[in-house]
Design a protein around this nucleic acid. Structure first.
Lengths: 97, 97
DNA sequence: AAATTTGGTTTATAAAATAAACTACTTTAC
DNA sequence: GTAAAGTAGTTTATTTTATAAACCAAATTT
């Protein structure tokens, strides 16, 4: 059977953001924006969803007088991402059932 | 960079249906329904979308006096599914750019 | 001091997923 | 033979999302 896919990660932008954070562990808003090619508005919304789900931790500070939003992946986020990958495998292995 | 994902396949039910058809090549409505665990209504809608996209071919016939809807994956569907898989890899290889 | 840039957030709109209701026909039970 | 239940779906309605557009606050540049 096909394993259920975490709908929070079944979204191009959220998946890309999480994929990037899986590697770098933490990054600021605009770096994630550049890496994913997202618009600010879209990224802002999706980051909030990932935070609400506990997949990332968001810290708002300042750097050179400008606001700086730092996102860190959490253990729950890592687990969710890895689970998503595992579940995805069930859709791509040949031979049904 | 993260490759763009075909939004038609970024859907649990459509991906599961396509994944199943990738293996069996063709199947009737209720077999796909059973294999994916979908509701009839949802599957009906999603099958129409896959057909409109040219990813599957739908043939409506009868078997034992009952309507029978047969879905076959098309070359375009196979290509889309394989492309989706390739693009997905870019989200799961370690090391960002 | 007006215009522009930075770093975002909020609101509005369009598209999608899903559930619920419905259609059409067949079979079974009375 | 007709009422009830089952098969095989489709259509419509509702909720949820994704995305774009508009906005905000402060800092910088001209």
């Amino acid at each position: 059977m096909y394993e259920e896919l975490d709908s929070l990660l079944l979204s191009q932008l959220r998946l890309a953001a999480m994929s990037y954070l899986m590697v770098v562990k933490e990054a600021d808003f605009n770096t994630i924006k550049d890496q994913t090619g997202a618009s600010s508005g879209n990224l802002s919304v999706q980051i909030n969803k990932l935070q609400e789900a506990g997949y990332i931790e968001v810290e708002k500070t300042y750097r050179n007088n400008y606001p700086l939003t730092i996102c860190k992946i959490t253990p729950a986020g890592i687990q969710a991402f890895e689970g998503f990958y595992r579940h995805l495998q069930t859709y791509f292995k040949e031979k049904p059932e």
